[in-house]
């Protein structure tokens, strides 16, 4: 195989490239097919209709909020899972990662029986005057539930790879544990945290099943972009395709912009692998 000068030995057998190409085509072709189906003259009016813009705005707002919630809840979870062994740790990890493999609709049902009016916590919340069902909060809860594992997995991996040598040194230099976390641990795993947050955001943006089951669908309140697409598909296929493309574009932009390789000198080894 003719390689450009200056490139080294990769150790990849040539046939791997063929399969890799097939894999790439498998992912890209449906996107191409969708793009080909877009009604271009109507594209701008379709995606700038009031309901579309409302849905997009709601999706971005709720996804940002749930990403923040994932960071707040996920960082401590990842730290506990990666750094301090305790009985039942494997079990806890399995449960935290469960939403990764669970059909989202199952997550929605579970959330319903937790935060719903008749739910485990919902009853008490209702008495306290807090109603979650059919509110934007419900959307955020559903998104956080399905997106949290992405952050935890990503960050736990980064924490394990980084090890705790730097933390030990920081402690002997007189830094209290909170200082070590803030000034050493978090900066060291920042690339892992960032990629986890981006994945969480992307997952939140695409959340559909749990939201539909748990939060309902009302314009401006709970009807996020995926729900809008699902509804538009009933009557207006062109609008559904146009909105799908919009969602893909937003997701690609978010992931593409933030999911870059870190600078070599600043990265703890393996943070992105």
């Amino acid at each position: 195989m003719n390689r450009r000068s200056g490139t080294g030995y990769t150790g990849i057998p040539p046939w791997i490239y063929a399969i890799a190409a097939a894999g790439a085509v498998f992912v890209l072709l449906p996107l191409v097919a969708m793009v080909a189906k877009v009604n271009w003259p109507q594209f701008i009016p379709l995606i700038t209709s009031e309901s579309s813009l409302t849905a997009l705005g709601l999706s971005l707002r709720t996804s940002a909020t749930s990403t923040a919630a994932c960071v707040v809840l996920g960082v401590p979870l990842a730290l506990v899972l990666a750094r301090s062994p305790f009985p039942g740790q494997r079990l806890l990890r399995a449960f935290v990662l469960l939403p990764l493999v669970l059909p989202p609709v199952v997550g929605g049902i579970a959330l319903l029986y937790t935060f719903g009016r008749q739910g485990l916590l919902g009853r008490s919340l209702e008495m306290a005057g807090i109603q979650i069902a059919f509110s934007t909060t419900a959307v955020v809860l559903a998104q956080t539930f399905v997106a949290l594992p992405f952050l935890v997995v990503s960050l736990e991996g980064a924490l394990r790879t980084a090890g705790n040598k730097y933390e030990a040194v920081a402690a002997t230099l007189g830094a209290r544990p909170s200082t070590v976390l803030r000034r050493v641990t978090i900066p060291l795993v920042l690339p892992g945290l960032a990629s986890g947050a981006v994945l969480s955001f992307a997952r939140s943006l695409g959340e559909f099943g749990a939201t539909l089951t748990f939060a309902g669908s009302l314009q401006g309140v709970t009807r996020t972009l995926p729900l809008e697409i699902y509804l538009q598909r009933e009557t207006d296929a062109d609008a559904a395709v146009a909105l799908s493309l919009l969602l893909v574009a937003v997701a690609v932009a978010v992931v593409g912009l933030s999911y870059r390789r870190p600078r070599v000198d600043a990265a703890p080894e393996g943070a992105f692998r």
Binding site: G116, G216, L218
Partner: peptide, 17 residues
């Protein structure tokens, strides 16, 4: 809520939401 299907409407009613 404005659901996309009858099933989703019924689901919200049976669950008491």
């Amino acid at each position: 809520s404005e659901e996309s299907s009858v099933t989703d409407v019924l689901g919200k009613v049976t669950s008491g939401e």
